[in-house]
Design a binder for these strands. Structure first.
Lengths: 340, 340
DNA sequence: TCTATTGATTAGAGCGCTCTAATCTTGTAG
DNA sequence: CTACAAGATTAGAGCGCTCTAATCAATAGA
């Protein structure tokens, strides 16, 4: 378990430790002969530079701290994948943490990341107070994903939830729907934006926005639809539904079918997030897709720009979602009492 | 961005660096007066020990290298969550990597992890050659999740895929099913075990195992069912299906319903993995659940035992799955031509 | 009063590397 | 043949910490 050091390589190659160091950082100012000798010695010993020692000596870090709100959430997993790909390509390593969705635990997790003296820190939808984020940004560049900030040392990468809802509304309105309801995600991350986007888009189309309070779960979707069914007569029932997310949409569809309504013939449903669920042929859910991997990449790039000192102004990425049209939306039917 | 060092704290508290070091590691041999003074100084300066410097000086590491085959896979995300929880509780940090499902990239990722001189390395379903794993195990303890190994320096944590399939078969057989088919996952990780377990369990029940080649996707499930429908007459059609995984099961259900068969009245279907999909009320899929978070915890424990030197013998954890009975399985119907 | 003894504190070397400045080689021009 | 640049190599300090061994202070025992 004891690994060779630079000194060992130097001895075996018959050169100084400093020369080995130069070779390892592939400096151009090393003769080909020596370089080959050092490389051979390193190979034979199975030598690999010690990242931590290197980091300490050079006063630079190749570590990026990443705190994830919840890895189980496919959204974050995708962002981390994007992050990882970009980081690996640039020679950075990720130290990853979970905050357990509690501010206290996130505080510990963040502290833990900072104790690595990372080149920067990326927080995915953190729930820690803004003050903690600002404090962190005084130690190293910070990038927030799925959370906003006004701090000048903090960059942000968000998906445009308002635009996403608008996309859904535009799609349904374009199909002739006039009565469209939104199943609101309540306090879930991003839900407020989606609601605002829905309302604005509806007004833009000259339509009255209907908002039903729900949550980002399938049972929430069921309940919300039952509420709609109880509130509206069959003829007045919304013909289009913009769900808070895909799970919510699935629940809504269940409740609709249970009530004898067909999707999309009677009611069109749009989800949000484009999870693996939505792609299932069984469901084939029309949904809003955010460029998740891209968000990870952008978060990395923003960080690197700060690390390299290329930029000191904060950057606020707002990524445009796109609509994935599948089989749960269709033109409003004339028999369904659409235009009255 | 320049952070205080131990020296700064020592100066401010009017003590030596060594004393600060003792306080930071909360050694008992420090007087209460000094301890308080040091702690106050540290607090005021916002001092936090530098993990890398500490690691270098103490010749110990609190870093665990984790290589994930694919974070998008909820299975691995869950394992990592379990790992993270255990690691955080014990004061370890995770350096996380993705291998991109390619041996070459995994090799790089692994090398990258090892360059941290981690306390140990945990590989989730790696595809690198066994030789690479053994080489790694010569540098630090290695734990494999969802992959086996014969190397003595390597511990493994696996779910018992054979037992899982057996659970599904037992369940269906107990409900009176005699004709049961397995939709095989082909070359997917763990698929071979699930198939073997299915076959063995069927024979144990005195039943003839039917295996249809498929894959772990919903379209795969659809195709497999269509194949079954083409092969068997309505009366001879299997009444029970053990799918390769949940996605596969969903596809199978789609195809069955498309063919006018009801689930579970005409055909019972069991999934595998207990993904969020299966829990959806809309689907309510009976499925096999592995203790994923637990697997992460066990992987951590195995590693720590080696790190502490408590154990040198390899350990092979084989975790027992459990069956989650929901609504896609029921007693075989008499009208369906079950017993002829 | 002097010496153990115990507990608290500190000096200083060293972890494995990088980096600056100094030194050693060449090759070339005068 | 000397001088000097330019390139190649190395010595040595230092990154922020830990750890051993030494020092210091205070108390107790003789």
């Amino acid at each position: 378990m004891v690994r060779p050091t630079m000194e060992d390589v130097a001895a075996r190659a018959g050169v100084s430790r400093a020369l080995v160091s130069l070779v390892m950082r592939n400096s151009p100012k090393v003769s080909d002969t020596r370089r080959a000798a050092v490389l051979r010695a390193a190979e034979e010993l199975g030598y690999q530079p010690h990242v931590m020692a290197r980091s300490l000596a050079s006063r630079t870090s190749t570590v990026l701290g990443v705190m994830v709100n919840d890895l189980r959430n496919a959204f974050f997993a995708d962002v981390v994948e994007g992050l990882d790909a970009a980081a690996q390509a640039a020679g950075f390593d990720l130290v990853l943490n979970t905050g357990g969705r509690s501010p206290a635990r996130e505080g510990n997790a963040l502290r833990s990341l900072l104790s690595f003296r990372p080149a920067g820190v990326i927080l995915l939808s953190p729930v820690v107070p803004a003050s903690a984020i600002e404090a962190a940004s005084r130690q190293c560049p910070v990038v927030l994903v799925s959370r906003t900030s006004r701090a000048s040392g903090v960059d942000t990468v968000n998906d445009d939830g308002e635009a996403g809802s608008a996309l859904a509304v535009d799609h349904l309105a374009g199909l002739g729907h006039r009565r469209i309801a939104h199943l609101d995600g309540g306090g879930a991350a991003g839900a407020a934006q989606r609601r605002r986007g829905f309302q604005a888009a509806m007004r833009r189309h000259g339509l009255e926005p209907i908002v039903v309070r729900s949550e980002h779960t399938d049972t929430g979707g069921e309940k919300a639809v039952r509420e709609l069914l109880a509130t509206y007569s069959r003829d007045d029932l919304p013909t289009g539904l913009v769900a808070g997310n895909d799970f919510n949409a699935v629940g809504a569809i269940s409740a609709l079918e249970e009530a004898g309504l067909r999707v999309p013939e009677d009611v069109s449903v749009v989800g949000y997030d484009n999870t693996s669920l939505a792609a299932l042929r069984h469901l084939s859910l029309t949904t809003v897709d955010q460029p998740r991997t891209e968000m990870g990449r952008l978060a990395f790039e923003a960080l690197i720009e700060r690390v390299r000192g290329d930029r000191t102004e904060p950057v606020r990425h707002l990524l445009h979602p796109s609509l994935v049209v599948r089989s749960t939306t269709t033109e409003v039917s004339l028999t369904g009492g659409s235009s009255r």
